[in-house]
Structures are given as structure tokens and as C-alpha cells.
Lab assay of single mutants.
Amino acid sequence: NITNLCPFDEVFNATRFASVYAWNRKRISNCVADYSVLYNFAPFFAFKCYGVSPTKLNDLCFTNVYADSFVIRGNEVSQIAPGQTGNIADYNYKLPDDFTGCVIAWNSNKLDSKVGGNYNYLYRLFRKSNLKPFERDISTEIYQAGNKPCNGVAGFNCYFPLRSYGFRPTYGVGHQPYRVVVLSFELLHAPATVCGPKKST
């Protein structure tokens, strides 16, 4: 009989979020998941679920829940969905086509923008091939755009693969920082350890 609540607040209220190319993952297990707390949290810009209804989450049990978190621009949030393409979905964070879970995003301009620009948040701009679902690539190898080998030196046709967002408070909404948490639900042939409040007695 599990009684402790799942530590969703640790994920959602973290002081610093990860850059999207180096997205953070927390495994959540052996706890009671009260999703209504999240669902009623006012400032969400997006709360979209795939393969599961957000209002039914509290009735369900899962083997594991993974909480992935990172920061992207407002106009990139739409790429955090199954079957998407674009710089983020291709080179930074890719969801599987059969994704079961929820994508939760909110504007973090007050936290993550600075006058003069916040350059701490990076994304991958160049990559030889697209990421596989949930693949994480933190390499900083110089990207070779031409035929000539770069030998690890940036220059003509040789690019550092990461780019900084440089968030400023005055940017338009599409270019403002958004914090994103992706909850993915794993249902294995194993005992369920993460259940909603109704199922955990």
C-alpha cells in the first residue's frame, strides 16, 4: 500500500531547467500520482495528452512514469508532439509516433530571460542525422557541412553544433522561453508502482 505522493513538484518547480539538447529525465516510481494538482495549476500554456485522457489519469496505474524537462522557445512547443519535424524534434528531443503521455508547457519569461540576454539555454542546430525517439545527444563535436574534414576547428563550413537562445524579456511570445515537462507513461508486464489516488488503496 503506497502512500507517499509522487515528487512532481520537484520537477515542475525546479529552480533551473535543462537546455533542450541535454534534456533532463527523472524516473518516478513507487508513489501516488495526483495529476489533478498539475491539471489545476493555472499558468499552463499547453497540457496535451496522447493515448490517454488527462482527466482519467487519476484512475490509472503505470509501471513507471518518466518526467523529461527542458526549455525551448514558445514557437517550438508545437514540435513536442508525435510525428513532428523541425530543429527541436529532429536534433534535440524526439517523441515516438506511438507516444503515451502528456506534454505540459508554460511561459517562463520572468524566470529564464535576462536584460542583455540569458545565454545559458542551448539547443542543437546541426546534426548529421535525426534523433531516434528519446535519444539524447550531448556531443559538442564540430559539425562538418562541406567535404573538408574540420579536425575539431570551427570555421568555413565547420560549425559548433550548439546555439544559444539568448532570451531577453522584451522578445515577442514566440521567442520567449517556455518550460516543458513531458510525462511518459510506461506500461510493462510488471507490477504497477505509480497509481492515481483512487487506485492506491
Rank of each mutant, 00 (worst) to 15 (best):
N157P: 01
Y123W: 10
Y165I: 03
T170G: 06
R179E: 00
Y159D: 00
Y35A: 09
G155C: 04
D68F: 04
A14D: 07
A145M: 06
F44I: 12
G155I: 03
V103S: 01
L162R: 04
G83F: 10
N75H: 15
C102W: 03
K94Y: 03
I80Q: 01
S113Q: 02
N75E: 15
L5K: 14
Q176V: 03
G117M: 03
E135R: 08
V37I: 14
N118I: 04
P197K: 15
N151F: 10
P161Q: 04
S78G: 13
V182H: 01
D9A: 14
R124A: 01
T193Y: 12
C102G: 03
N87C: 14
I80F: 01
K114W: 10
P54K: 15
P96Y: 03
T63F: 07
Y165E: 00
N147M: 06
A81L: 05
V71F: 01
G101L: 02
F17P: 05
Y123K: 15
S53C: 07
A67C: 09
K198L: 13
V11Q: 04
Q144E: 11
T85F: 08
V182P: 00
A33G: 08
G152L: 07
L5H: 12
P54D: 09
K94Q: 05
C49V: 02
R179H: 03
K199Q: 14
A154V: 07
G86M: 03
V180R: 02
G152A: 11
A81C: 05
D68A: 03
H175K: 00
S108A: 12
N87R: 14
G86E: 00
E76P: 02
N130Q: 14
N107Q: 06
V32I: 14
N107P: 07
F41E: 09
V20L: 02
H175P: 00
S78E: 11
Q144W: 05
L5D: 12
D137T: 03
Y119H: 10
Q84K: 13
A89K: 02
S36H: 10
T193F: 11
V181W: 03
V173C: 07
F185W: 09
K198I: 13
E76M: 05
L131V: 10
S184R: 09
K148I: 13
P169L: 05
L183G: 01
G74E: 05
C195K: 11
I80S: 01
A190N: 13
G146V: 01
N130A: 15
R168K: 04
I104C: 09
C31P: 06
E141T: 13
G174S: 10
R25Q: 03
L187A: 15
A89H: 05
A42T: 09
F17Q: 04
T170E: 01
N107D: 04
N58R: 11
A192N: 13
A81E: 08
N40F: 08
Y93I: 03
A105Y: 10
Y178G: 01
N40G: 10
Q176N: 04
A33D: 06
S164R: 07
N157T: 01
T85S: 15
A14Y: 05
T15N: 09
T63D: 13
K132M: 11
F8V: 05
E141Y: 09
W23H: 04
P197N: 15
N147G: 07
S78Q: 13
D59M: 09
F99H: 03
R127C: 02
Y66A: 07
R16D: 12
G86L: 02
F17K: 02
I28V: 08
A81Y: 04
D97F: 09
L5E: 13
S29Q: 11
E76H: 10
N40A: 12
I142P: 06
S29V: 10
D112Y: 03
V181T: 04
F44R: 14
A42W: 09
R163V: 15
Y50D: 00
S69P: 01
F41P: 09
D68L: 03
D68K: 04
I104M: 12
G152V: 06
S53W: 08
K110T: 10
F156C: 04
N64C: 11
T100L: 14
N109F: 04
T15Y: 07
R127S: 06
K148A: 12
P96A: 09
Y93C: 00
N147Q: 07
T55Y: 13
F8H: 04
G196Q: 11
V52E: 04
G51I: 04
Y171P: 00
F41D: 08
